[in-house]
């Protein structure tokens, strides 16, 4: 049961944190049309996160009360659980601290310039397109339904970020340098997507989760094809950062949460 919850949270946290990051662009994009496009993508991620958190809240509520109070290390959340109240959509995103979050490190990396944002999304979108294609056959009907709905969105995201990779790579000297730098810097966060967490291993066995590691060859092929068209080189660096999926994060997540959870922290228990 716990693995099922953690698995769902992993998906939810990825969607939320990336959606939050992309939302930071709103009003600051390089051109109006792309500001609108990026906000649409952000909205898709937040929408996915909402469905996933509803499911995660439900899974938490199914766990017996005394066990439930020992899952998380966040005081406000545990207080709520101890009071006997059932969790809802917003409790898990707004009341957990960083060491309870399970998103991949990639999603919490800063927006940087447009090139960094594009590179981060590209790695993520190619992965999630493959991932949701498998997840739609999950034995968890809820997750399968979310995956199926999200797949349409992710197909669009993938097209958007792939096209921008190519445009920037094969655009001007400056854009090529910038996107290559971004790729070089964020490459080390791409590997974690394929490292199976404990929850992923457990859910794979039950026919609920996806074999992320098995997606690597397809991901490589797609990335290689786009890089070729974009005239970019694949970084030689093989060392990959990991930890986010097991709740060990970079310094960035704490700051993201400080903003994201600001209202819940300053005015605990109030509804808005």
């Amino acid at each position: 049961m716990l693995d099922h919850l953690f698995y769902t949270l992993q998906l939810a946290d990825n969607a939320l944190i990336l959606g939050h990051r992309l939302g930071e662009w709103c009003g600051h994009g390089p051109v109006l049309e792309q500001d609108i496009a990026l906000t649409n993508i952000s909205l898709d991620h937040i929408g996915q996160a909402r469905s996933l958190y509803q499911h995660a809240a439900h899974l938490t509520n199914e766990i017996p009360q005394e066990q439930r109070a020992k899952i998380f290390q966040s005081v406000t959340l545990n207080n709520k659980i101890n009071s006997g109240e059932l969790l809802q959509e917003d409790d898990l995103p707004y009341l957990r601290d960083a060491w309870d979050f399970r998103n991949a490190l990639l999603t919490e990396q800063p927006n940087g310039d447009w090139a960094y944002t594009v590179a981060r999304s590209f790695f993520y979108d190619v992965f999630y397109f493959l991932y949701y294609t498998k997840l739609k056959d999950s034995k968890d009907a809820q997750l399968a339904a979310i995956a199926e709905k999200s797949l349409k969105e992710v197909a669009y995201h993938q097209r958007w970020s792939s096209e921008w990779m190519i445009r920037l790579g094969d655009g001007t000297e400056e854009s090529k340098t910038r996107i290559q730098n971004a790729v070089n810097d964020y490459w080390q966060y791409s590997g974690e997507l394929f490292v199976m967490s404990d929850a992923e291993n457990a859910m794979l066995k039950k026919g609920i989760g996806v074999d992320a590691a098995a997606l690597k060859p397809e991901w490589d092929a797609k990335v290689e094809a786009i890089f070729k068209e974009a005239t970019l080189s694949i970084p030689e660096e093989k060392w990959m950062q990991k930890g986010g999926k097991q709740c060990r994060h970079s310094e960035h997540l704490g700051f993201i949460l400080a903003e994201l959870q600001y209202m819940q922290r300053a005015y605990p228990g109030m509804e808005w």
Binding site: C26, R50, D90, P93, Y94, Q264
Partner: peptide, 8 residues
């Protein structure tokens, strides 16, 4: 946007 009090 980054500080909105709920996901909705």
């Amino acid at each position: 946007i980054t500080r909105a009090p709920s996901l909705r």
